[in-house]
Write a protein that binds this DNA or RNA. Structure first.
Lengths: 115, 115
DNA sequence: TTCCTTTATCGTATATTTACGATGAACGAT
DNA sequence: ATCGTTCATCGTAAATATACGATAAAGGAA
């Protein structure tokens, strides 16, 4: 948000928007996939799999960590990144709740609303 | 993306990121809820339910329309906005696929990866 | 200690997003 | 034809996001 404050919206909407923001860049989507599908966790490994500079990947990792979707365990000079399953599950539950509400709405067609 | 091109990432990641971007603002989340839960469809009605100016709400509606999550039927000087159920369902399916992949990954803990 | 590796952060440039007021376009009503 | 309503778009300002190279910090290895 550039100007509007978070208090102006519902807590749930602010949370969902924040999670969505973390997922709103292809690089971050792919980083999550890389962390689950490949036996890889270091920033350097991820850099090799993406067309981005190391500093940029580090920024994306920071954003994912900010919302808690991943965590980073420091191992000497290295950092082992991995999915934070509980945060991810929590996020998924909220997303499911949202979409279930949105898709359940009986008559949403414009045809029905026009009256 | 500011600089990196979309061809640098997988199509699936680009699509998911695009949907996530549309959902990455609390106002847009609430607009979707308003369109499903309340018997409301006009821009002006939505403006009254949000702490934003009419032009700003119009921009948010445009962004939701861009990714196809809503549609707008013109009725004279008015526009009746509503959820586009099929696009919404498609988006949800892709999101479910993503989260199922992300949560299914057997041993993702950093503990397991460190070796 | 001195190097090497790994990652975060700084500085910076550019692009995008968000917000508002003002204006214009479309159309129904008078 | 004029007025009122509704909405999109324009112009603009400020904040964020994205990307890179350069540098700093942290720690293992020589």
């Amino acid at each position: 948000m550039a100007v509007a404050k978070t208090e102006d919206f519902t807590q749930e909407a602010v949370y969902l928007a924040d999670v969505a923001k973390a997922l709103s860049h292809p690089a971050r989507i792919q980083i999550l996939k890389i962390l689950t599908e490949m036996d890889v966790c270091m920033c350097g490994d991820i850099v090799e799999l993406l067309p981005l500079a190391q500093s940029t990947v580090s920024q994306h990792l920071k954003e994912l960590k900010r919302v808690g979707l991943i965590q980073g365990d420091i191992e000497g000079p290295k950092v082992c990144y991995c999915i934070n399953s509980s945060s991810l599950r929590k996020a998924y539950e909220h997303i499911q709740k949202l979409f279930n509400q949105l898709t359940k709405g009986g008559s949403n067609s414009c045809e029905t609303k026009k009256k």
